[in-house]
Design a protein around this nucleic acid. Structure first.
Lengths: 376, 376
DNA sequence: GATCTTTGTGCAAACCTTTGCAGTGAAGTA
DNA sequence: TACTTCACTGCAAAGGTTTGCACAAAGATC
């Protein structure tokens, strides 16, 4: 029942190889023949069988997208952008959800390896060494994690955290809490590192609470701790935690931003819809998805997996692109931050407050991703 | 470099067919041989090549999931559940986003057809006839759309809308607006139909505003209209519209729920996080994803696409399952609804208000999906 | 002890496509 | 005219797996 290259060949009176070439190398076939073949193919509703093609070429034209938690609102924009970008390049995308489980990640990479030309690993929880090992099995691009020797797409949350802390310090907050993210998260470590440094510089104290699951519950559960810590401002690992905290503080009768200022990270859609609207560090998730796909596909054309026709002069050994891309973040100031106890007073060693390059008042729009790529 | 069945055969001293059987029909091979082969396979890190397998069996063990908009928070839980269910059954999932575009839907079904064993069409915007036509090309299960002769997974939004209207009428609202959804949406028609009927029964007036895009902007843009319509309550096509409306009304200085009550549909996570928390009709999206995958796979085992070994007595013609499943919805009452102008007064022909079977006060948890399947 | 089952394994074709090589005829060159 | 070049097309092998059939050895039946 399914129509194959053979049917088209018969219908148009040529050999199957000519039909094949009509699709995979049109310049090799006589224009007249080509139009005839194409007409027949159209007529019969022929679509090339990608499995058969994959079998011989070694390239599936599929990529895998491994996500910690699809339901986490941080990821859908990334998935959407990646899928769209892949499709533009005639690739299809397998999406798999690991439920934040490292073992599932490994299993999925294995399962997908034979079926895809490459895998995007988003916010992986695996160990570095395991990731490196897996990268020998299938081309990998890692998002939100830095690994030497592997192509990575990173968002500069360090810069974001620094800007956020400066923002808070500038508002007169000196006791600040950081609600950390899950164990094993590169982003979390990065935020912590940058926030500590920035706090030190600004002459503020930073209390770290966590690790926390990257969900509203994570933030909700810490509300009590935050109150007890006696801080006037909080930076959260992500918006979900921040929003959970908003909830929790509200339940405790703690006013935001009057008594406590809260800053999130990610700028998920939701953060514009809470009351108060959340001040947050916007991460360019869509751009990350696009960039990651581009890097994966680029790598694939640079160093194709050996099909039958891979040239004799091909480089042996593990040659591969290891470009790392760092995407800029931006602080989006909304309504969850306000002047703190030391507002107006001189701070030890701190410069005057002013809108820095990465600080922006909320224009009410998603951030524009164009031009925010910085190769490192 | 990639290890094949042939390598395993050589290593374990058997013919490749025996290795093949070890994986695809273990009962046909001697237990001793089997363990030896499995050991070798494990050693060498053998993974069957699914493309090759697909080529001969005709089954890819992949399914396609076509989604109107991945970034719409209604869908991620569905995607997640579908992917998880599929994986349990050893299937992988292609996810594709159509941007609410009917033409893209069609193109995607075609593109995926040869590569999957079936496609889940979620909230399609295509015409019924086109869907039917496509279903002859590849097994289809449709979510959120009713088509005679095709397997469908539906959520009983009609029931939900009715309950919502009764809830509002019971609170003393007689002037109610309905913010409709996008053109071509089965759900939207269903809600409208049921809401109209319920309003009539309850002696309330229903003003329909729309169609609207299913986003917050859709709701935001209608805030002015809602105020002008002079209604005291609004039922929105979905939570995003409802939340946009909340925003818009707030900006206009209209108090929710004091002046206007608002009810949404879907119970997306977000709806628990707005201020006021949104009263909404919870739809079992995760259950829908699971069920749809089950139906697709069931259909596939019942009427397999002809591989080589499909029996001689196979039924010819378009035999297929056409079961339609209707999943229950529930009204979750939160803080965006309050007594209206006619509260306490007798309503024409209305029964006393009481918690009906599908009405529930918010326990603060995601709804439990078990047991809510009702075959029709 | 001869025949019939049963169990386990090997053989080879088939799935659909790509691609190196060879062959054809026509056009261009000497 | 004889030779080379060129554009196009056909041939057949290859890719990794499944599976109907044949075959062998062991066990069961009489």
């Amino acid at each position: 029942m399914p129509v194959t290259i053979r049917d088209v060949a018969r219908a148009s009176g040529v050999h199957i190889s000519t039909v094949s070439r009509t699709f995979s190398a049109p310049h090799l076939v006589n224009p007249e023949t080509r139009v005839r073949v194409l007409a027949c193919a159209e007529d019969l509703g022929y679509r090339p069988n990608r499995a058969a093609r994959a079998l011989i070429t070694g390239r599936t034209h599929n990529i895998g997208l491994i996500i910690a938690d699809i339901a986490n609102p941080f990821f859908p924009p990334l998935i959407k952008a990646a899928e769209s970008q892949a499709r533009h390049r005639d690739y299809h995308v397998f999406v798999a959800d690991t439920n934040e489980d490292a073992a599932a990640e490994e299993e999925l990479v294995h399962a997908l390896a034979k079926q895809v030309d490459g895998v995007l690993l988003c916010s992986p929880r695996m160990s570095n060494s395991l990731i490196e090992q897996l990268s020998r099995e299938v081309p990998l691009v890692v998002v939100n994690r830095q690994l030497a020797g592997l192509p990575c797409v990173l968002m500069d949350v360090g810069q974001g955290a620094r800007t956020a802390i400066e923002h808070l310090a500038g508002l007169g907050h000196r006791q600040i809490a950081l609600l950390g993210g899950p164990r094993g998260s590169w982003t979390s470590r990065e935020i912590r590192r940058a926030a500590s440094a920035a706090a030190r510089t600004a002459g503020a104290d930073l209390t770290v609470l966590g690790p926390n699951p990257p969900t509203e519950h994570g933030g909700l559960a810490q509300a009590e701790q935050v109150r007890r810590a006696g801080v006037s401002a909080v930076l959260a690992y992500n918006d979900l935690i921040a929003i959970g905290l908003l909830e929790g503080l509200d339940a405790l009768g703690v006013g935001v931003p009057q008594e406590v200022s809260v800053v999130g990270v990610d700028d998920i859609t939701l953060s514009r819809l809470t009351r108060p609207k959340l001040t947050t560090v916007a991460t360019p998730t869509a751009a990350a998805g696009r960039t990651a796909v581009d890097m994966l596909l680029q790598q694939d054309t640079d160093f194709p997996r050996t099909g039958r026709g891979s040239g004799a002069g091909a480089t042996v050994g593990v040659r591969r692109t290891t470009a790392q891309v760092m995407l800029q973040t931006e602080l989006v100031i909304r309504d969850s931050t306000a002047p703190g106890p030391y507002a107006g007073r001189e701070r030890p060693g701190a410069a005057a407050v002013g809108p820095g390059p990465h600080r922006r008042a909320d224009p009410g729009n998603p951030i524009v991703a164009a031009g925010d790529v910085v190769a490192s």
